[in-house]
Design a protein around this nucleic acid. Structure first.
Lengths: 257, 257
DNA sequence: TCAAAAGTGTTAGCACTACACCCATGC
DNA sequence: GCATGGGTGTAGTGCTAACACTTTTGA
């Protein structure tokens, strides 16, 4: 019988490839802000990206989904690789040792903990309301505002930045709205997501026109109360069209904002 | 004293990470066609992408440069990672065994050849005229027209296709002309490169206007004899501007053609 | 002189930008 | 009424697509 995989308690060389890990930037939208999920071993004071080693019998893509499932409870999530990180010095020996000393399950076959790690970088887009984030026995898990990220373990800040840069460059191909928003949403919410990713303000009126013109979004005959001003309309994505475009790698819209 | 690395004779587990390889799509432009370099073990009949394992003391980026140096003699080449490949079934055991049986240097420390490989995909842009492609004792090396690729080893066709797709999507960021063309070139040559990568014809006149408008290219007061028709002007890139844009990740031009 | 391929110019249409103006709501 | 924020419209600008015409060269 095979041992059960767990990414939380470091890695066991019987069931994991010893030097290949996946790290995942999990993005969600809540309270008008873009958030990312970070983890921290309870005995440590360093936050890190949710990640784990790749099982000997699993694809990297499967490994990320497992990691995501453990942290968010979600099964079928939008998840894309974007870059790999493998420089010699990317994980400092002392920093790593401190981490592993506490959680390393003694290797059962004489292998040493390798001092070279390749991290496969993924980003994932999930709906905040559907995630069930729970702390584990040894690990804290928390949402952080994308603009208020604490110092991270090893090169994880660089990984996070690279993810955002990548999404920014490919914004026309990435269904950020479709994946991050609930079924019904307002145009200002959608715009806020694009502004957070692009890192600058967008013209409210031009944005609205552009989004409607691509034909993937339909207005609903509802509004939402939201303070001392006109209630914004609610919209929803036209699921068929969106999924067809995603499946066939069709560019959703231009990259120009 | 450390053993010398060679990607040609499979891998030696004393100096290489056993399961991490780099594979590189080397693109060049010659005779009006886009070419890619392929390798073949002389005893085999399968062509494969130039690649090699990553040394225990080297970065993946360094490993590719070593692989490139061995195959082309070039040192400072434009080289970017674009995707990684690590699915369980990507290398079929029998196909791999056949390959390794002939070239595998017996492991000196009891390790087994792993049956899981992660391939780090890079693409590289070089100037055809500067490369010195030489066959090695055990390996043939040859240029292939990008539209006439034979069946390749394992999933190397998929890797090649993914590279082209990636460059296509990011065409506005990739200095294909600057890296593939010699110092002096004609506008039709530049256009041919874009047509080959995009997979369709471009309007001669609009292309010329667009290229000149970005301000990275200057006309020279020379032409080139090229058959029974008007001689095309020669142009050159304005090196400073191009390198500044490349260094700072600035988009060279729009992605729209 | 003719075919082939290169250089230049023109036009219409579309997309993006930058606004002005109106509407709905709570205080 | 007024501040706040959402919805709609419009003129100007620049990019793109589609095309006509001219130039140069070898056969």
């Amino acid at each position: 019988m095979q041992k059960e995989k767990s990414t939380i308690i470091a890695h066991d060389q019987e069931i994991f490839i010893p030097n290949i890990s996946v790290d995942c930037i999990i993005l969600a939208f809540h309270g008008g802000r873009l958030k990312t999920l970070l983890c921290k071993f309870k005995v440590s004071d360093r936050w890190m990206l949710p990640g784990g080693f790749v099982g000997k019998d699993e694809d990297p893509d499967e490994a990320v989904l497992r990691v995501l499932k453990e942290r968010t409870g979600l099964d079928d999530v939008y998840c894309k690789q974007f870059y790999f990180f493998g420089k010699k010095g990317r994980i400092k020996p002392d920093e790593n040792e401190e981490m592993l000393k506490r959680f390393y399950v003694a290797p059962s076959n004489g292998h040493q903990s390798p001092n070279r790690y390749i991290s496969l970088g993924y980003y994932s887009l999930i709906k905040y309301g559907e995630a069930h984030v729970v702390a584990h026995e040894y690990e804290d898990v928390e949402w952080f505002d994308i603009n208020e990220i604490p110092p991270l373990y090893a090169d994880h800040s660089e990984i996070l930045n690279t993810a955002i840069q990548t999404i920014r460059k490919q914004i026309g191909f990435v269904p950020v709205g479709y994946e991050l928003l609930p079924e019904k949403f307002t145009m200002p919410e959608l715009r806020t997501i694009y502004e957070a990713i692009l890192g600058r303000e967008l013209d409210r009126r031009n944005f609205q026109r552009k989004m409607l013109s691509i034909g993937f979004i339909q207005p609903l005959n509802e509004t939402r109360r939201a303070g001392a001003h006109k209630s914004p309309n609610l919209y929803s994505f036209i699921k068929d069209k969106y999924e067809y475009a995603e499946k066939n790698g069709i560019q959703i819209m231009s990259n120009n904002f």
